[in-house]
C-alpha cells in the first residue's frame, strides 16, 4: 500500500480548474517529484494534499486513511508537513520561534533536541536564532522553512519549489539536504520547475501538463525522455 495515494483528483480556485483528474502514488521511503511548467497544477496538487484547497472530486489517502476533506491542522497531525511555495516564513517571529511553530502539535520532550539537529544541519540558522524571519536572506529562509517542517517529524514532506529564486550553489545545498532527509527515513514529494535537479534526486517522477499527468516513470527514464528534455531540460 502506498503511503500517499491520489486518485481522480480535481481541484482549483473559483472558476479555474487547475488539476483535472490526476492519479499519483508515493511509496514509503521514496523521493517522488512532480514537474511541470508554471500553472500546470503542481502547487494546487500539493495544496489539496495539505487541505488548503478542498478537492472538487477524487480521493486522497494517507497510510490507507482518507484525508480528502480534513482541515489542514488534522492533516499535519497525521504526519504530512508542507514547505509552501515562497517558504511561508513568519517574518515577525524569530528563527527559533519559527522552528517552535513547526513543532506546534508536539508535546514530547525531544523538541529541543530536534531543534539542535536542525541547527547542526543549517549552522546559519543557529547564528541567527534570535533574529526575526524577515531579516533572513532567501536561502536562509528556505533552510528555515525546511527545518521548520522537519520539526513536526513528518512521515511525508511536501516541498513546493524549494529551489525558486536561489543561487545555483544554494540549490545544490537544498537538494543535498532533501537527499539527507530521505536517508533519515522521511518520504518526500517534491514539486519543481527545476526539472534537471529534481529528476536527479528523485526515484520516480510525474510530469503534469495543464492539470493532467502526461508522463510518469523513474527519474532516470524521465531524464532520458525526448519530450521531457525538450520541454523541461532546455534542450533542442
Amino acid at each position: 500500500m502506498a503511503l500517499l495515494s491520489i486518485s481522480g483528483l480535481v481541484a482549483g480556485y473559483g472558476g479555474i480548474t487547475a488539476v483535472k483528474g490526476i492519479d499519483l502514488a508515493v511509496e514509503q521511503g521514496e523521493i517522488v517529484t512532480l514537474i511541470g511548467s508554471n500553472g500546470a497544477g503542481k502547487s494546487t496538487t500539493l495544496r489539496a494534499i495539505s487541505g488548503l484547497v478542498r478537492p472538487r472530486r477524487g480521493a486522497i489517502s494517507f497510510s490507507g486513511q482518507p484525508i480528502t476533506s480534513l482541515l489542514p491542522h488534522k492533516i499535519v497531525a497525521l504526519g504530512i508537513s508542507q514547505v509552501p511555495e515562497g517558504r511561508g516564513i513568519f517574518h515577525r517571529l524569530t528563527v527559533r520561534e519559527n522552528l517552535d511553530m513547526g513543532a506546534f502539535q508536539r508535546r514530547d520532550r525531544e523538541v529541543g533536541a530536534d531543534m539542535e539537529r536542525v541547527f547542526a544541519l543549517f549552522p546559519r540558522l543557529k547564528e541567527r536564532a534570535g533574529q526575526t524571519g524577515g531579516t533572513l536572506s532567501g536561502g536562509e529562509q528556505q533552510m528555515l522553512a525546511i527545518g521548520r517542517a522537519m520539526m513536526a517529524r513528518p512521515k511525508l514532506l511536501l516541498l513546493d519549489e524549494p529551489s525558486m529564486g536561489l543561487s545555483p550553489i544554494l540549490v545544490e545545498t537544498i537538494f543535498e539536504t532533501v537527499t539527507n532527509i530521505r536517508a533519515q527515513g522521511t518520504t518526500i514529494l517534491l514539486v519543481e520547475q527545476n526539472a534537471a535537479m529534481a529528476l536527479e534526486v528523485a526515484d520516480r517522477g510525474y510530469v503534469i501538463e495543464s492539470g493532467v499527468i502526461s508522463l510518469h516513470g523513474t527519474g532516470a527514464e524521465l531524464a532520458r525522455d525526448d519530450s521531457v528534455r525538450k520541454a523541461y531540460l532546455g534542450e533542442a
Binding site: G51, L52, Q82, F90, D100, F104
Partner: peptide, 24 residues
C-alpha cells in the same frame, strides 16, 4: 504561551499557520 504563539502565527499568515498544525 502556546495559544499566544498560535495567535501571532495566525495574525501573520493564516494559511501558513494552518500548515504548522495550528487549528486556525
Amino acid at each position: 504561551t502556546r495559544t499566544g504563539k498560535s495567535i501571532r502565527a495566525v495574525s501573520e499568515n493564516r494559511e501558513n499557520a494552518s500548515l504548522m498544525g495550528i487549528d486556525v
